[in-house]
Write a protein that binds this DNA or RNA. Structure first.
Lengths: 296, 296
DNA sequence: AAATTGTTTTTTATCGATAAGTGAAAACAG
DNA sequence: CTGTTTTCACTTATCGATAAAAAACAATTT
C-alpha cells in the first residue's frame, strides 16, 4: 500500500498557514492551495476535510474560514512525512559511511528491508537508482556488492569534476555582458563576503554555499549529463561534510578565499586567470578530501 | 515468481556442448560446467537432471556420458531464454525510437506492463535504471515523461563524449612502450583492415568493431564514471545503427578510414596528431548522427 | 587430502493486490 | 461565462508471497 506521506506533509504545511492567517481569516481556494503546496487538489481536499473534522476550520465550499487556533500537538510527526524512498536513502548513506561497511561487503536486500523497516521493493528500487553513484555494483541473480568509498573512488570523481568545471568556467567567462549570470555571480560573491565576516559563527553554512556556487558555474552552459554528474558530487560532499569535521572552520575559510579569487577571475573575463583560479581551487578541494582518507 | 531463463539458457548451451562432444563422451564435472556456463552449480544440476530425464545423457554422479545425439527441436525457444528485464529494454527502445513517441509523451507504467507482457515492477525497475540515460524524467507520484531523442540530446551527448575521449586518447598515447594496450591496438587495427577488405559483404559488422575500438581507448586510463557514460553511448549507438540505414555502407567505410588514421596517430605517440585524428573522427561521427535528425 | 557430488539454507526476481494520489470532466455559484 | 467545487476514472507507491537461482554445508569418492 502507498504511504500517505504526501497528505501528512500537506496537512502540516496547511496547519502553519492557518496559524499565520489567524482565526476568522478566509481560506484560499482549493486551486490556490494546490499550487501553493505542490500537491494535487484531491490531496488538498483530503486535508481540508480532516481540518474541518478536527474543528480547525469551519464553513463549506468557498466560504471556509479558520475556526480556531491550532494546538501544539496537531502536526503529524516529522518522520511520518518522509516517503519510504527517501527514508531508504538516508538510512543507506548512514549505513555506508558510518557503519562498518568495508569494500567488498555484500548487500542483502532482505536484511536491509528488515533493518530499515520497508519492503524489499523499496530497497531494490533504491539500489537501482543508487547504482549510478558508482559505489555499488550488481551481480545478476546474486545481489549487490559495496565497492567502498575509497581514495580511488574520490580520485576518479575529482578527475571528472575538474574536466567538467574547467569547461563550464571557460564557457561562463565567454558569455556576453548582458547575460543574467553576471548578476547572479555578484550576488553569490556578496554571500561569500557575508559568510566570511561571520565565519566563526556560521562556518557550517559553507557546504550549502559551495554547492550553489558550483551549480551556478555549471548552469552557464547546461548539459544534462553534467547536471546529472553534479548530483553525485552533491551527495558525496553532503555526507562527507557531515562526516569529516576536522579543521572544518579553517578549511572553509580557505575555500571561501579561493572562491572569491575564482569569482574575480570570472568577472575579469581573462581566460588564463579563470583556468588558474579554477584549477587551484579544485586541486585544493581534492587535497582536502584525500587528506581525510589518509587520516582514517 | 522468478522466471527460469537462466536455466533454459544454460540448458541450451549444454545441449550444444553435448553435440560437440559426441555420443559416448564423458561429461565434465559439475564445477567445471558451472564455471563454463557462468551459472551456479544448483542450476547445472537442474540442467543435468533434465538432460538425463530426456535421455540425452546417461549414468550417475561422476560417471555421466553423452547417451544420444540431440534432436533438432530439443532447445528451448530463444525468447524463453531472455530475462524479463532484458525484454523490457528491447521493447522500450523499440517503442521509443520506432514508435511515435513524441517529446513530452507521458509514460504509463501499467499500460507498458500490459503491452510488454510483464509485471509493473519490471517496468518500474527498468525506468529507474533507464533514467540515467537522460531521455526520461520522473515527476513524483505522477509518472514519467519522455523527453525525446532530440537533436539537443545528441549534441549534449557528443560534447561529453568528445571531452572524455580526447582525455583517454591523450592518456593512451603517453603509456609506456611495454604496456599491453599496444598489442591490442595492433590487433584491432588488423580487424579494421580485414573489414575494409570485405566492406561490401560485412559493412554491418562495423557497429560492433566501433564499440570495441572506443572502449579500448577508454580502457587506457580507467575511470568508472567514464565507463558508465560509455554504456549510454553504446546503447544509443546500438539502436541508432539499427534505425538509421541511410548510406550505411559509405558511412562505415569513411569511419574505418578515420579509425585507421586515429590508430596510426596513437602508435606514433605524437600528441598533436592524436588530438587532430581524434577530433576529426568524433566531429564526423557527430555530423552523421545530426544529419539523421535533419533528414527525419 | 583434494576434488566432486549430495543436501540444505539464503537470497533474488517477479507477480498481483490495494490504498494513496493525480487529473480532468461535469456540475455549480456568483 | 469564469472561476470554483464535486465526482470519478485512472496511475503510482508499496507490500507480501512464491518459484528460481545462488551459496553454504555435509558427505563421498578417487
Amino acid at each position: 500500500m502507498k504511504s500517505d506521506t504526501v497528505f501528512k506533509q500537506a496537512f502540516n504545511q496547511t496547519l502553519d498557514l492557518l496559524s499565520a492567517a489567524g482565526t476568522g481569516a478566509a481560506l484560499p481556494s482549493e486551486n490556490a492551495l494546490s499550487a501553493d503546496l505542490g500537491v494535487s487538489r484531491t490531496t488538498v481536499r483530503k486535508v481540508l476535510f480532516q481540518l474541518a473534522k478536527r474543528g480547525y476550520i469551519a464553513g463549506q465550499g468557498r466560504n471556509r474560514v479558520v475556526a480556531s487556533a491550532v494546538p501544539d500537538g496537531a502536526h503529524f510527526p516529522h518522520t511520518e512525512t518522509i516517503a519510504t524512498a527517501q527514508q531508504v536513502e538516508v538510512h543507506f548513506m548512514e549505513w555506508m559511511l558510518r557503519g562498518q561497511a568495508q569494500p567488498g561487503t555484500q548487500i542483502n536486500e532482505l536484511e536491509l528491508a528488515r533493518v530499515f523497516g520497508v519492503g524489499t521493493t523499496g530497497i531494490r528500487e533504491f539500489l537501482n537508482r543508487f547504482r549510478r553513484f558508482g559505489l555499488i555494483v550488481k551481480r545478476p541473480n546474486a545481489g549487490w556488492v559495496f565497492m567502498g568509498f575509497t581514495r580511488e573512488f574520490a580520485m576518479e570523481l575529482f578527475e571528472i569534476r575538474e574536466m567538467f568545471e574547467l569547461r563550464s568556467a571557460r564557457a561562463l567567462a565567454q558569455l556576453p555582458d548582458n547575460a543574467a549570470i553576471w548578476h547572479r555571480l555578484r550576488t553569490i560573491e556578496q554571500q561569500h563576503r557575508d559568510l566570511l565576516n561571520e565565519i566563526d559563527a556560521r562556518y557550517q553554512d559553507f557546504s550549502d554555499l559551495d554547492n550553489r556556487f558550483h551549480r551556478l558555474i555549471n548552469s552557464a552552459a547546461p548539459n544534462r549529463f553534467i547536471d546529472d554528474f553534479y548530483d553525485i558530487i552533491t551527495l558525496i560532499f553532503h555526507y562527507h561534510y557531515q562526516w569529516n569535521k576536522r579543521d572544518e572552520r579553517a578549511r572553509n575559510a580557505v575555500a571561501i578565499h579561493e572562491h572569491l579569487e575564482y569569482i574575480q577571475a570570472l568577472l575579469s573575463r581573462d581566460l588564463e586567470r579563470v583556468q588558474a583560479a579554477c584549477s587551484l581551487h579544485l586541486a585544493s578541494a581534492r587535497a582536502t578530501m584525500l587528506a581525510a582518507f589518509d587520516a582514517a
